[in-house]
Design a protein around this nucleic acid. Structure first.
Lengths: 364, 364
DNA sequence: ATGAAAGCGCTAACAC
DNA sequence: GTGTTAGCGCTTTCAT
């Protein structure tokens, strides 16, 4: 493989200047048809492909949007889908469940395509100056970041130079107040789900299982508390239990811990996400506690797994895909200058999926 | 937003040369700690992010791998998932089903990450010299292409300059013989599935529904024929029916056509993909033909939808995710020079998922 | 350990 | 229409 041909090679071979070669690719109509054909022909013969890097450098834009998401190295993460398949009584199959990031990717890709952009995706392995983030940032015109993927200060720096939109997770601090931001209606969703449990199923002894330091979880818990208070049910200022990671394993352990506590058993377990709730389902089955007959269980997120487990999990669906699309729309607006200076903050509506695990009838 | 700071700005502000700034980011250890800190500090103050384009240009490598896939604008494609949800008796939800491309993306992203690469994805809207393909090709160190996404001749040109691996779909012509290539064992899978129908379920009147011009489908049909002949069942040289697009709608229509044919009704309908088979399920239900009691139905691919429909669809699962991973491994090997000149051709094993639609017992 | 200088391949003015 | 000429921001020898 000799080194790749450049505009110069093509220009020489077709007897024109490099400027003309460039024009053929950028604005074909500005070149006489005959000349154009000649250029294209020699390009083909030479195996010429314009260097995206050189183009980007010269034109100061890449035609690429980016997405940074956390490196889900949750030990469960890899096997969740399998567990789901198993719970469904089918053979293991790692491809059933769509992750969060998959859905956002899909949404962004669709929207990006509509606007003529490609999508660069990268999970952020944290690390030095050479973090994946900077790598992405340096190669795209703008990008979206899943909340808490990136150190706040890095984001702060980068967002001064190019459009950045934060996804899923309320603004963390005032430092990032100038960032665009899209989130789901966490509080509304959890409030409505809780209300459903209380009013429609008549449950009153509820337990909430949250996690440390997650703004999303805080927002959800807030909705829970609001619904409780509205119904005249006492609710603590803190979740009944906090776990460190929101995994199936932790959900399972939390359930054991909760059931082993002295006093009356709760009538419902509300988990801050689906994965924990699924873990709980396993534990409850093992202990012979029937769901929803003996106890109701709910999750949050609406991951594919939630409908595959038995009983199907009642949960709150987040519009991840739409989130991806909105992110791109916003980025494009910023890039084309049709968007005020003001930071945008969007809240996407969620919906409660009433399934079997809360006592709602099976749809079939 | 003043124009973005460059190495020069950082260099000046920290009283070093641009070479040193560059070193700080590329090879931190080659710079005295004290100097390094000074550089990093001013970089932070300035909001400096290295330009990926400039780096790529100068170093002739991007640290990015790519994937080109077709623009699935199959009218069904968008609504499949919903149909699946509906079939499952649940509310519509566009996020259940993972597409092919989603799974490949996931596999590639994972593998790319392991090797320190980011992933650039783009659906190929066909078109002039400025096709999406060229855009991707110009921005990555190597890339994978879903079969028949790109005009053969373009690929031919591009593959002379950088590693390209074709996915899913046997080599189309001798022109592309020098391309690396990964496919699923289409023939093996269909042969085994057919054998299962014949030997384990004792079915003998089979009908195969294929499509035009797809190498994958040809390979599958070949497996079907082999199994038939091995069992002493006469099999035509052509599928019993060919459709133009492998969609649910076409599958439904094909089923009507087949059942309306004079003569004995087939005992089993073997479709070349899951989508058509799902369409068939709808038609059969409408006509009051029970599956699998009155007739068996099988698909191919193992899309998520296949396990959500009722009866669950017996099918052949393709390891799409693994395909993505292997593609990256191969690209990386080529890029690091640890791979012979010889084109690699890989065939990934598939597995038969025996579910209800062929008469196998429900797992629950 | 650090600096100087020459590109990398293209776009964008500006001339012709 | 087409050619000329500067850069774009970085990496990379080669010196020092």
């Amino acid at each position: 493989m000799s080194s790749a041909p450049t505009v110069y090679d093509v220009a020489e071979r077709s007897g024109v200047s490099i400027a003309t070669v460039s024009r053929v690719y950028r604005n074909p109509d500005s070149v006489r048809a005959q000349t154009r054909e000649r250029v294209l022909a020699s390009a083909r013969e030479l195996g010429y492909v314009p260097s995206g890097n050189a183009r980007g450098l010269a034109s100061r834009s890449t035609g690429v949007l980016g997405l940074c998401f956390p490196d889900y190295s949750d030990p469960d993460a890899e096997s969740e889908a399998e567990a789901g398949a198993a719970a469904f009584g089918d053979e293991p199959d790692e491809d059933v469940a769509m992750l969060y990031s998959d859905q956002i990717i899909r949404g962004m890709e669709r929207a990006a395509r509509r606007h003529g952009y490609a999508l660069l995706i990268a999970a952020s392995l944290k690390g030095g100056p050479e973090s994946q983030v900077a790598k992405v940032a340096g190669r795209v015109d703008g990008f979206a970041v899943l909340a808490r993927t990136i150190p706040t200060e890095d984001l702060d720096v980068i967002s001064r130079r190019q459009p950045v939109v934060m996804l899923a997770g309320p603004r963390e601090s005032d430092d990032l107040d100038h960032l665009d931001h899209i989130e789901a209606a966490n509080t509304d969703g959890q409030r409505e789900l809780t209300r459903h449990l209380i009013e429609d199923h008549g449950l009153r002894r509820l337990a909430y299982i949250g996690a440390e330091e997650s703004p999303d979880v805080q927002a959800r818990f807030r909705g829970y508390v609001e619904a409780c208070r509205a119904a005249g049910i006492p609710a603590a200022d803190e979740p009944d239990l906090r776990v460190s990671m929101m995994t199936q394993a932790e959900g399972a352990r939390a359930t054991d811990a909760l059931l082993d506590r002295p006093g009356e058993r709760p009538e419902a377990l509300l988990f801050a996400n689906d994965q924990m709730a699924v873990g709980a389902l396993h534990t409850l089955e093992r202990r012979g506690v029937r769901v929803p007959r003996d106890i109701a269980v709910t999750g949050f997120d609406g991951i594919a797994l939630s409908r595959l487990v038995r009983p199907a999990l009642t949960t709150v669906r987040q519009p991840m895909r739409q989130m991806g699309e909105e992110a791109v729309e916003l980025l494009v607006r910023r890039l084309t200058g049709r968007q005020d200076k003001e930071p945008v903050s969007m809240m996407l509506p969620v919906s409660v999926a009433r399934r079997e695990s809360c006592g709602c009838p099976s749809p079939s």
